[in-house]
Amino acid sequence: MAITSIKNLKEFSTANDRFEGAHLLCPGCAHSMIVRELMNCTDDNLVIATNTGCLEVSTAVYPYTSWDTSWIHIGFENAATAASGAEAMYKARKRKGTLKNPDAPVKFVAFGGDGSTYDIGFQWLSGAVERGHDFTYICLDNEVYANTGGQRSSSTPIGASSTTAPAGRVSYGKKENKKDMMAIMAANGAHYVAQVAPNKWKNMAQAFQKALATEGPCYINAISACTTEWKFDAKDTIHISDLATDSLVFPLYEIVGGHELNITYRPKNIIPVCDYLGAQGRFRHLFKPENEHVLVEWQKRVDANWERLQRREEARV
C-alpha cells in the first residue's frame, strides 16, 4: 500500500520491506533499523549510494545484495558524489527524453558513516550540498570508525575510549568535542537538516519523509547505537537509544531553510547524562574517582546545548 502519512505503527507495518535480511551487520545493529525505516517510509523508486563502512560491506557481500532498489557502492569518501552524480544524470536524461520511465517518481539518497561524513567525505558532501543537488544525505552516526575496528572520528564524543584515543593510566579517552554537523550542514545551505534516532520511529519517519519531499539537498544525522564499539548487549539497542534521546545527549531537532530551528522531541522526564554514559563500556572508565570532572563537564555541556537549542527555537532566526 502507498505510505504517504504514517498515522500509527499498525498502519506502518503494512509497508513492504525493501531491505532484505541475511545481511551481515552485527545482531542488534541500529544501522539496519534506520535503513529499513527509510525504505519503508516511501513507495517511490530509490537510487541509493552507500560508501565503504559497516553498512556497505555487510549488505553487498558477493554474490548477495540486500537491496531491493537501485544501489551504488562507491569508495569511502564519495556517497554524496555518487548520489549527486546519479541525480544530475537523471535530470539530464529526463531533459533529453532518454529515460525509459520518465514519470516514475524517484528519490536520491546517500548513506555514509560518521567517519566518512564528518571526516573523510566531508569536502565531497559539502560540495554536493553547495551545488544544490536534489538528494538526501543520511549519516549513520555511531561516533566511531566501526568497520575498521573502532578508531576515533571527529564525531566521537569527549571521554569515549577508542582504539586511537584509548582510556588508560594517563588519558580518559578522547579530549576533543564532537563536531556539530547539524550547524555545519545548515550553514552549508542544506534545505532541511534533522537529527533523528531509531527509538523515536515516528519522529524519524517524519524527518525522512520531509527530507525526501524537500527539493534540494537535505542532511539527516541519524544516531546509530553500535553494540560492538559502544559496548552494550545486542538486545539493548533501543534501550540505549532511549537513554541517548531522554538524557538530551542526542536532542532531536530540525533546521529548515538554514535557520528555522524546531525541537521535534521533548522528553517528559529528562534523565541524567550519567545514566546514558554508564550503560556503555566505552565510557566505563569515566566512573573512576579521578575522572569525575569529566562527568561533571558532560552534564554541564549537555545542559548548555539544550538551553542553546531552546533559545534558537524561540528566537526564530
Binding site: L9, F12, D17, F19, G21, H23, G28, H31
Partner: peptide
C-alpha cells in the same frame, strides 16, 4: 499486534 517488534527488528 502493536508492531513494536516489527519496526525495531534489524534483520527484517
Amino acid at each position: 499486534d502493536c508492531q513494536n517488534c516489527w519496526i525495531y527488528c534489524p534483520d527484517t
